[in-house]
Design a protein around this nucleic acid. Structure first.
Length: 578
DNA sequence: GTCGTGAACGACATATACTATGTAGTATA
């Protein structure tokens, strides 16, 4: 079964894009209808291929017309309306919308006045300086478009950046801005703060007495390649990595409103602003104020603004306009994860790719207030794997260290087994059972089909030594798609065997994905946050795992290392789900 | 194009910054 959901999403997005050109308006009701239909489809867990028109109509945001188009696509592989629009607006024309500064109206004008039908045509027209005489264009717009075309040539399609790259990039920039005199707070917002898997651009909010020095500091950073625009309080640049950074400087008392605005999502903001209007208030990036008279009601903190709108503070990871405002209003927001009592997927330098000695890792774990720590080196069947003798030596050492630790920290001698193509595991069952904690994960043979992948993971789950499956899909965000799995079958098996599933906090993985986590919510499967640290400093990544869990609306009750100490320890020693 | 109210039709996301041109387009959450 192909990925019908992805096919439908692709079709709806193309339809939206083509309709933008057709109606020369990115905000038309049709465009918005297709986009909201795409969002509704994206939130569906069921297999679309099995849904009838009637069932499709049950989905909010899908009406008669869209439902029929979806059926048309699934039954014939094509949609007449899309093909008709493709005739009028060929792919090369649609591609022009990728150029920053070119919208549908400008594209229409270039086509009708200058016969520009492609990027090549546009390049020629720019070369021949034919744009400057067009009404609405001028010398400056010609130059801007030239730069934008060059940028597109260099970077290919404007693509989103994996969070594993964007977050450290943002932190570097933030560290520089913090050094600017007069700067108070520097906070990243946007999809980064919402903890999306991929990031479109980096949004930074700064509070400072004066905007100019901050914006100057950003514009002159070594890693900044070009300044896109600069006003009194706002600057946009592109870094050498090709990532756009938008900086906004606000006054301290406006911080809450600015954070709210810049964190988004756009849909969330719009809903909040409508909510404000219904209360005789208006919300913008400077504050929440009365419509009549303009008296500011709240602006300094997000909490105050939400409160004035009759809502509890909503965590950024939930602000995706997927019902979180309604949930907040009726007190149905899932609780945040809270204190984390331990980490159960950590490597030391005994693993070939681990970099910190045991003492450092233990020190970091104690500093984090953990009650338990499982060291899980790679097993022999992987490149960085460890043989039996070294592991037995490590176990001996653990006994001595545990005696020193007393009951401040429970140290588990674990291992990360490799799941082979047929579900085979390292060593032999007897040896595996000698560990305090075994997790098993896939590290190779990503090309097998869904049936084979599901079978191998299922087999590992059924092994008496395996307590947890690590990074379930083995994806690498932006580099490698996850293996194909029958998730429902695996979740059922995990439920039956009591096998835990890992929520891995390594930024390139974030595995299980939010989507998979949403699907496991309804099952009684224990979930475990881990850092998968290969260095003592990486223990902090468990916080990313927690964010991903919160993003998926996972109740802390389901998360083993969010349980109270005794319950967690009891579960770890095989004492059941508690 | 969708949805709700009432059986055809109106309502339907907000608010602002920046730029280049000379009123509006594009961009941002």
């Amino acid at each position: 079964m192909a990925d019908t959901k992805q096919d439908v999403l692709d079709m709806l997005r193309e339809l939206a894009e083509l309709t933008i050109l057709e109606e020369q308006n990115p905000q038309s009701f049709r465009v918005r209808a297709y986009e909201s239909a795409a969002q509704a489809i994206g939130a569906q867990a069921t297999d679309l291929g099995k849904l009838t028109v009637k069932e499709l109509l049950q989905i909010e945001g899908i009406g008669k017309s869209t439902a029929e188009k979806i059926r048309e696509l699934l039954e014939t592989g094509r949609v007449a309306r899309v093909e008709a629009l493709r005739e009028k607006h060929p792919r090369a024309v649609v591609a022009l919308l990728q150029i920053q500064g070119l919208g549908p109206k400008a594209v229409a004008k270039l086509r009708s006045e200058l016969g520009v039908q492609s990027l090549d045509d546009l390049r020629r027209a720019l070369e021949e300086r034919r744009l400057r005489d067009l009404r609405g264009f001028g010398q400056k717009s010609e130059e801007k478009l030239k730069l934008a075309v060059e940028r597109l040539d260099r970077e290919g399609e404007l693509s989103r950046t994996p969070i594993s790259i964007a977050l450290p990039h943002a932190q570097r920039i933030i560290a520089h801005l913090r050094d600017v005199p007069g700067v108070d707070q520097v906070i990243y917002c946007g999809s980064l703060r919402r903890f999306s898997e991929t990031i479109g651009d980096i949004d930074i909010v700064v509070t400072a007495a004066q905007a100019e020095p901050v914006m100057e500091a950003l514009a002159t950073l070594v890693l900044v390649e070009r300044v896109l625009g600069r006003g009194e309080r706002k600057t946009s640049v592109v870094t050498r990595r090709g990532i756009q950074v938008d900086l906004r400087v606000v006054e301290k008392h406006q911080l809450g409103a600015a954070l709210l605005y810049f964190t988004g999502s756009k849909g969330h903001n719009i809903k909040l602003r409508m909510r404000a209007l219904a209360r005789g208030l208006t919300l913008n990036e400077y504050g929440l104020a009365e419509v009549e008279g303009g008296k500011v009601v709240a602006s300094e903190t997000e909490e105050a603004i939400y409160a004035a709108l009759g809502l509890p503070w909503i965590p950024p990871v939930l602000r995706e306009d997927t019902g979180e405002i309604e949930a907040a209003e009726s007190g149905r927001l899932t609780r945040q994860i809270g204190a984390i009592g331990g980490d159960f997927h950590v490597h030391t330098n005994v693993s070939g790719d681990g970099r910190s000695p045991l003492e450092d890792v233990i020190g970091a774990a104690k500093a984090r207030g953990y009650h338990a720590l499982a060291i899980t080196e790679h097993a022999e069947n992987t490149l960085s794997g460890v043989g039996r003798e070294a592991l037995l030596l490590q176990r001996e050492r653990f006994r001595a260290v545990q005696a020193e630790l007393g009951d401040t920290l429970r140290l588990l001698h674990g291992v990360e087994l490799n799941i082979g193509p047929d579900g085979e595991l390292d060593y032999d069952l007897e040896f595996r059972k000698g560990f305090d904690w075994c997790l098993a994960s896939v590290h190779s043979h990503f090309e097998l089909d869904r049936v084979a992948q599901t079978r191998r993971v299922m087999k590992a789950m059924l092994d008496p030594s395996v307590r947890m499956i690590g990074h379930l899909s083995a994806r690498m965000i932006g580099h490698r798609a996850g293996i194909e799995l029958d998730l429902d079958a695996l979740f059922d098996a995990a439920e039956k065997t009591g096998t835990a599933l890992e929520i891995n906090g390594a930024l390139p993985r974030l595995d299980m994905s939010v989507e998979a986590l949403r699907r496991v919510r309804s099952k009684n499967v224990p979930l475990v946050l881990t850092s998968d640290a290969h260095h003592s400093s990486e223990l902090e990544r468990i916080g990313f795992a927690a964010l991903n869990a919160e993003r998926a609306g996972i109740d802390p009750e389901r998360v083993v290392n969010a349980w109270p100490k005794e319950r967690m320890l009891s579960w770890l020693s095989g004492g059941g789900a508690g």
